[in-house]
Design a protein around this nucleic acid. Structure first.
Lengths: 206, 206
DNA sequence: GTCTATAAAGAGATAGAC
DNA sequence: GTCTATCTCTTTATAGAC
């Protein structure tokens, strides 16, 4: 049974000839199908059809439909959690750390768009999903603490509850998965600029 | 076959004795179960169990699982569309109309929380879902036009694309369904205040 | 690494009695 | 208005050949 969870070993993105798919390619297709039709509404048969494989061939690569989900969610959560442990996110004024973390989250969202999209649609229907939700909650709590610290510093307005502000902030950030496409007009960093502008300074003309 | 789509006739919220459920009560339970487990992951059997009914009894009230979804989505979409046709939303400066519409949308979201929650999770898996998505898109386009008009007026900043701003704005607003609970600390109108403050003036201290 | 065939369970929906 | 029993199709997953 395959399903190793390490990152791809450096720069070997090219396929070694051969007939079939490798785990990563299958995962990418599966995640896209999960996004298009919903995880629950996607049957293993339709997944196999989309890959041009039989169900059995697919089961050779992943032991279950849910294992595909699990690996995909790990990809998103691992990257998001990585934003919090970077050096820039751990030193300096709270408002600056908040900016770094927000921009980092948007970068991850853009970089791992399908994986994060899938993560954001998880509702806790199974143990795998509930574990993912738990990690999301932990992530949110760290951001809330950062917002609270920035309020104490006096750099972030204190007339909105830190927890509400964080949820609204990430509601805005996360909604990007609903419409942003990397091949569209704006780059990921331009997008991050616009989101940060709106989040920090609001819609109104000053 | 029942499934009438008119609103409840005035003030008859009380049940007429009798054994079972009426359409509205069944709908409310169904929508909550759809939200908890996802529409696709909810079986008619589990729905019937939750209601304490047999599947057949449930099919007496609604002709299909999807008809429940359809009625629920109509409830959300009709209310949202109603925000755009109110008198306050149709006269005055664009920035004021935008404020009225935003607040109206938040009010609907709070008032019809489960129905709007369900609407926001629809991904276009069937004709019913695709029709709902189409109506959501039309709603969004009207808001975008309003943002554009406010930019032309000079009351809304023009350095963010109107379409991007609208999407981010409603990303923030819509994310409220993920955490707001009417029985919690803040009322719907307090919530609307906080959302509008953050959306209009941003997170940063002035 | 891929296939066909199949098992076993669950899905949405219906029939017909009470 | 509710029930039990059942139909038919689809589901996830496995067996075993190539």
């Amino acid at each position: 049974m395959p399903v190793s969870d390490h990152a791809a070993p450096a720069a070997s993105a090219v396929r070694r000839g051969r007939p079939g798919y490798d785990q990563r390619q299958i995962l990418e297709v599966a995640v896209q199908v999960f996004i298009d039709h919903g995880y629950d509404a996607t049957s293993v048969a339709s997944l196999a059809d989309r890959l041009g494989l039989s169900k059995s061939a697919l089961y050779h690569h992943y032991p279950s439909k849910e294992s595909l989900l699990e690996v995909a969610l790990e990809e998103a959560l691992g990257s998001l959690e990585g934003v919090l442990v970077g050096p820039e996110a751990r030193r300096g004024a709270a408002s600056e750390r908040l900016g770094v973390v927000l921009r980092g989250a948007i970068d991850v969202l853009v970089d791992k768009l399908p994986y994060v999209t899938l993560l954001l649609r998880v509702r806790g229907n199974s143990d795998v999903e509930r574990r993912a939700l738990e990690r999301r909650r932990a992530f949110d709590h760290e951001i809330t603490a950062l917002v609270r610290a920035a309020q104490a510093e006096g750099t972030v307005r204190a007339d909105i509850d830190a927890s509400v502000a964080t949820r609204l902030l990430f509601g805005m950030v996360n909604s990007v998965v609903e419409w942003y496409r990397p091949d569209g007009p704006e780059s990921g960093s331009e997008l991050a600029d616009q989101v940060l502008k709106l989040a920090m300074d609001g819609l109104r003309v000053r």
